[in-house]
Design a protein around this nucleic acid. Structure first.
Length: 430
RNA sequence: GGAGAGGUGGCUGAGUGGUUGAAAGCACCCGCCUCGAAAGCGGACUUACUCGAAAGGGUAACGCGAGUUCGAAUCUCGCCCUCUCCGCCA
């Protein structure tokens, strides 16, 4: 959400920047609505002021023993007018606010202008794609063959776009989770959080998932609870409606959660394998920073996510999203894309964004020192990393001619072996 | 899930339906005092929206929402949360 005062006084410049991300902002319609809203507010507030002062007068008169019944009748009439005007104000105000809330963030000046993912800019590339003297397989073949992925039973137990990991497959997922959390807490200075996996709607409004993206979420029946689509939601909302000590910034948190997404609108995309599931696991990085340090912290956060891939020896490239490809809340986003031999392509494995104060205004997260006034913090987050896709990257990049998977050295203590071969339980699974 | 108690400013904590946006204390901030500090003294001390060139006004907010009333922190109803006891449960 934009700061109203600033927004109003920079309308044209902001509209111009928003156009670069394909958002056509009707400045004059906004101005009209703004004027309309303020006129309605002024009118009803003047009436309320009148009621207040006359009510006070009634109180005084009554104390003196005077008869106030006639005055009460006139004030009562005012009250009726206020009631109907209030409804109008509420309507205009809600339209205005929802419109304001629907206006995307302004892209940072360093973000390349563009329309689609094709216009994203590669900023660096790390590692080299492995060379195979055989035809590398995609994970949706390797997984079932090794007995570590089971799509059929997941479909039976729950439905499409779910998966069961077996044995070393399950252990690899768990190993990645621990490896990521350990690396971020021991080497990158993050504090570990284990948040609830369900959140209320106020939290989802705070991060901007509601009201616009309700279709992407799973809602719990009979409760105001939703399954988290990412740990960003509970972790960012830890400090909703709080004023932090500016000296404690930046606050760097990391959290493991499963993530639940309905993937409405993504039917037909990535249907094979575990690239796009209704449930996946992720370690998320979240930062709360001072405004002047947020871009430096974004670069660090992105590097922290990349470090996981480097330690695992997985080739990747990092791109900066162009204006047209960024999420609406973001001022600047880096995507990290890992190399997947089975698909002969780089695939997004992390998305690292600086929301500046856009999200903090929504969630009302501020910081102050003893001498300064409270100001909204900047919020940042990024995957560090999506565990399922990291699992895929390991399986596909480290596959051997015999169908087994080598385990990267950094992960071996976590997995407990240096190789994943066909699993024993395959023999008794019909 | 049932019964009871409670939710007031950064914290503690007053608050008979009528100058209470809110006493008092603490904390924080600015002065004075001091070589410096503490103590003491004086002052300042919520936020959002809105009117105004400014000075300065106005509206709203005492968990959230609705209601009663000329007027609600105070009364009524619903919901949420915390605490105690009971039940259930990993």
């Amino acid at each position: 959400m934009h700061d109203l005062g600033y927004f109003r006084s920079h309308l044209d410049a902001i509209a111009e920047r928003l156009a670069t991300r394909g958002f056509q902002f009707d400045v004059s319609a906004f101005r009209d609505l703004d004027v309309q809203r303020r006129a309605a507010l002024t009118e009803v507030e003047q009436l309320k002021a009148q009621v207040n002062s006359e009510s006070q007068a009634i109180g005084k008169l009554k104390k003196q023993g005077a008869d106030t019944s006639e005055l009460q009748i006139t004030v009562r009439a005012l009250g009726d007018r206020i009631k109907s005007l209030d409804e109008k104000v509420k309507e205009v105000d809600e339209t205005f606010r929802s419109q304001l809330a629907g206006i995307p963030n302004v892209p940072h000046s360093s973000v390349p202008t563009g329309k689609t993912a094709d216009d994203n800019l590669e900023v660096r590339r790390w590692g080299t794609a492995p060379k195979f003297d055989f035809e590398p397989k995609p994970h949706w073949d390797l997984g079932p063959e090794l007995g570590i992925l089971d799509f059929d039973r997941a479909a039976k137990v729950t439905g499409a776009r779910f998966v069961v990991y077996w044995e070393a497959g399950a252990r690899l997922e768990r190993a990645l989770m621990n490896f990521m959390l350990d690396t971020h807490t021991r080497h990158h200075g993050y504090t570990e959080i284990l948040p609830p996996f369900m959140v209320n709607s106020a939290s989802l409004y705070g991060t901007g998932n509601l009201p616009k993206f309700a279709d992407d979420l799973f809602k719990i029946d009979k409760h105001d609870f939703w399954l988290v689509p990412t740990a960003e939601v509970p972790v960012t909302n830890l400090f909703r409606d709080e004023t932090l000590d500016v000296e404690k910034l930046p606050i760097c948190l990391c959290a493991y959660t499963p993530c639940f997404r309905s993937e409405a609108g993504a039917y037909g995309r990535d249907v094979r394998g575990i690239i796009r599931q209704h449930q996946f696991q992720k370690v998320e990085l979240v930062k709360f920073t001072r405004p002047e340090q947020s871009y430096e912290e974004l670069d660090k956060l992105t590097a922290d996510a990349e470090d996981i891939l480097q330690r695992l020896g997985l080739p990747y490239r990092t791109v900066v999203l162009c204006t047209g490809d960024m999420g609406p809340s973001s001022s600047k986003t880096y995507d990290i894309e890992v190399w997947l031999p089975g698909q002969n392509a780089y695939k997004e494995i992390s998305s690292c964004s600086n929301y500046e104060a856009y999200q903090a205004r929504r969630a009302n997260i501020r910081a102050k020192s003893s001498k300064s006034k409270a100001d909204h913090v900047h919020t940042l987050n990024g995957s560090g990393l999506a565990i399922g896709r990291t699992w895929v990257a390991i399986v596909e990049n480290y596959q051997q001619a015999d169908g087994s998977i080598l385990v990267p050295e950094a992960l071996q203590p976590y997995v407990g072996s240096d190789r994943i071969a066909a699993q024993p339980s395959k023999s008794f699974r019909p």
